[in-house]
């Protein structure tokens, strides 16, 4: 019978990504309720050494597929090996990250296994030993509780929502023989973002600016605040469409869905499509000169004033606080 919780870990350039620890900790919590094992799938080339790190976060056993064909990530190769490891080990639950890679992989693996998948979940729990996955739908305007008619039950977890906690376990390594057909896709080039900033979907702090920034120069004060808080700058669609910020910075229904600890919205009115992308943030601050702006209905803290006056003051205050 299907048993245990398996995670599909994610690494890039020889380092585990934060989502892998979030997955491991969540899997540990679920497995402890039923006294089961947590296993992990880790694929790439020259990555065997990373398995021990997963052990630190509650993983009992790591299946390592170490092969040049698995680096860099290519969907077909990773999906084939992942599905095979799942089949061979028959876990009851499989957890993926709802990162770009996890989203790309999970659907493909679920289709191979003819199993049900709930994506971008913000909570998971057991009900009578069965997985129930809770996920925002309609851009967070309601939530669905998903149950599964197939084994394994599969879910992908929204980055930054589930806590990662150290919990040392064996992390014993089992090497897996990898046989992959030559994939039809090939990565030609990886162009790294040189800003040194974490991606919005992984940022703990986001300072976002909208049309109220008046132009691209306006963002300098947001960059300063973000630097002090070790955060990343985001934008509304109005700012992106005006060409002030790149597409990758857009938060919202047709941009990124983010869940930072702290989201500071500056000169953003809070249109429903913007809220769609940031309402799962833990603490929301709005700085807007219009007291009627809808963003204030979502904000934990609101400042009604000119952002060009408030933001530099806030930066000065934060500098002292974090010093």
């Amino acid at each position: 019978m299907a048993k245990g919780v398996m995670i599909v870990a994610e690494q890039r350039d020889g380092a585990l990504r934060k989502i892998s620890f979030e997955l491991a900790s969540t899997a540990r919590k679920l497995a402890d309720q039923s006294g089961d094992e947590v296993s992990a799938i880790l694929l790439g080339a020259g990555i065997e050494g990373l398995a021990a790190e997963l052990g630190k976060y509650g993983v009992d056993k790591v299946f390592v597929g170490d092969n040049a064909a698995l680096e860099p990530y290519v969907t077909e190769a990773h999906a084939a090996v992942t599905a095979q490891i799942v089949k061979d080990n028959d876990p009851a639950i499989v957890l993926f990250g709802a990162s770009v890679q996890g989203k790309d992989l999970s659907g493909r693996v679920a289709a191979k296994l003819a199993g049900g998948l709930a994506t971008d979940c913000t909570d998971v729990k057991l009900d009578g030993g069965n997985l129930v996955a809770i996920r925002p739908m309609y851009a967070g305007k309601c939530f669905g509780e998903v149950v599964f008619n197939s084994a394994p039950a599969m879910a992908s977890l929204r980055p930054n929502v589930f806590p990662a906690a150290e919990n040392a376990k064996a992390g014993a390594v089992t090497k897996v023989d990898v046989a992959v057909d030559a994939p039809k896709s090939k990565v030609l080039e990886v162009q790294k973002d040189t800003s040194g900033k974490v991606d919005l979907t992984e940022a703990n702090v986001i300072v976002s600016g909208g049309r109220g920034m008046k132009g691209p120069e306006g963002y300098a004060i947001l960059e300063e605040l973000a630097d002090v808080l070790k955060g990343t700058v985001g934008a509304s669609r109005a700012a992106v469409d005006a060409g002030w910020r790149p597409q990758k910075d857009q938060v919202g229904q047709t941009g990124k869905v983010v869940s930072p600890n702290l989201y500071i919205a500056c000169g953003i009115s809070g249109a429903i499509q913007h809220l769609a992308g940031m309402s799962s943030s833990k603490c929301i601050v709005a700085i807007n000169k219009d007291a009627e702006a809808p963003i204030f209905t979502k904000a934990d803290y609101g400042v009604v004033d000119d952002l060009f006056k408030v933001v530099p003051e806030l930066t000065a205050v934060c500098k002292k606080l974090v010093a």
Partner: peptide, 29 residues
């Protein structure tokens, strides 16, 4: 269906926010 939405619920309510008072931007910040 392999995965089924068994129940649809409204989003969790957020506690009401605070509007920060003060005379000057520096005070509010």
């Amino acid at each position: 269906a392999k995965a089924k939405v068994a129940k649809t619920v409204p989003p969790p309510a957020r506690p009401p926010g605070k509007i920060i008072c003060g005379d000057e931007p520096a005070q509010k910040a």
